[in-house]
Design a protein around this nucleic acid. Structure first.
Lengths: 203, 203
DNA sequence: GTGTCAACTGGACTCACGGTACAGTAGGGG
DNA sequence: CCCCTACTGTACCGTGAGTCCAGTTGACAC
């Protein structure tokens, strides 16, 4: 028929939009099939249950997120070769990006699934876990590069510091969602940026 | 013994335990009434629907949480009269407390409701919002006291810094839940503590 | 042109859960 | 004695997930 998008990814698109707007639980299969203009049978042909949908969404989301981080910090590195300064630039770019997102960042998908984890199976939980561990590794690596050049003023665990990036983003998104404000996440990232400056900048 | 209605608070106890363990959505009314040894009718006598239960739980939780913060930072102030040092002590006490909690801190209740907010009515969302604004005010006040004595090395928005306490706790709890590790939240608080030390300590 | 297969449609059904309605009742005041 | 609070118990409804399955459609294969 249309040919340009196959049904499976059309389902994922519709589902993702709905889930980001109102949460996984509040998004019914009925609604997804209506949006994708398919039958209920068609949905279950592609996804054995809602869990399989969640997994596919998470997989796709994590890929996009990682590509985004790759791109963002690569650009930051182009702008300044120093590991500390490129990190600071990257965080600023990230904060700006979050501010420009109208409905908020999809990062909430991670926190969202974390808090509804009993609704999901082990596969989904494990995906979630691996995503966060991946970010830990990514940022830890960057902090190691910084620490090779700049002696930190206080001793910190670099794994925990890597987690702090994820935590600050996730926490900021929680605040943003609960407060119905708009820039909490980017504000929190900028505060974290100041932390790094204080921690690594030579006096 | 005492208490206006024994049954009502027994429902809340059972519900809270279940919700903390597996989330609000995954906790059925059936299960609550079984645990509290009452009939379904009895449940709906006390709570008109699940929303009313959520609201009552949140109200109670926020009260307990605030009392806990009051107590914790009052003790910290007793141990050291300096605003910065008492804050640092308070955060250490908080981190220790979080570590000692086996199932994790109930703070997740806030994040949890934030991410499932379409399941709840405006009353619940507003309660959530007010709780976070309350913490902002609390911590902002403490940071103002610190800033009166110690000139911060970098200019920061004290409201945002106040939010960062909530954000770091919430974010840490998200990590902890997703990673199935145990000390992420307390670790994140300790990292935040280091931040404050760097920000306010005279060189 | 016949056969096969993937990608569906559509309908009937089960089950769990939230929620409604309401009649009845045990027990403690006034 | 009645009345009120705090329930019990049952019957019933709607919604949404998930199952089963029989049938259709179009592409490509031989």
């Amino acid at each position: 028929m249309t040919g340009k998008t196959d049904t499976r990814s059309r389902i994922l698109d519709i589902a993702e939009a709905a889930v980001l707007e109102k949460g996984f639980e509040a998004t019914s299969i009925e609604e997804i099939v209506a949006g994708a203009e398919i039958s209920r049978g068609g949905f279950f042909y592609h996804f054995k249950d809602k869990n399989a949908l969640a997994r596919a969404m998470l997989e796709r989301y994590i890929e996009v997120e990682n590509a985004l981080y790759d791109d963002l910090f690569a650009r930051a590195r182009e702008l300044n070769d120093d590991p500390l300064h490129s990190m600071l630039i990257g965080l600023k770019l990230l904060a700006e990006m979050l501010e420009e997102m109208p409905t908020g960042h999809p990062g909430c998908v991670i926190a969202s699934t974390a808090y509804q984890d009993r609704l999901f199976d082990e596969g989904v939980r494990e995906l979630n876990r691996q995503a966060i561990l991946g970010w830990r590794k990514r940022f830890r690596g960057m902090f190691e590069d910084i620490a090779d050049v700049y002696q930190p003023r206080e001793e910190v665990n670099l794994d925990a510091l890597g987690d702090m990036v994820s935590g600050v983003v996730e926490g900021g998104l929680v605040l943003q969602r609960a407060l119905r404000e708009h820039n909490n996440a980017s504000e929190q990232i900028m505060l974290f940026r100041t932390y790094l400056k204080l921690l690594f900048s030579p006096n």
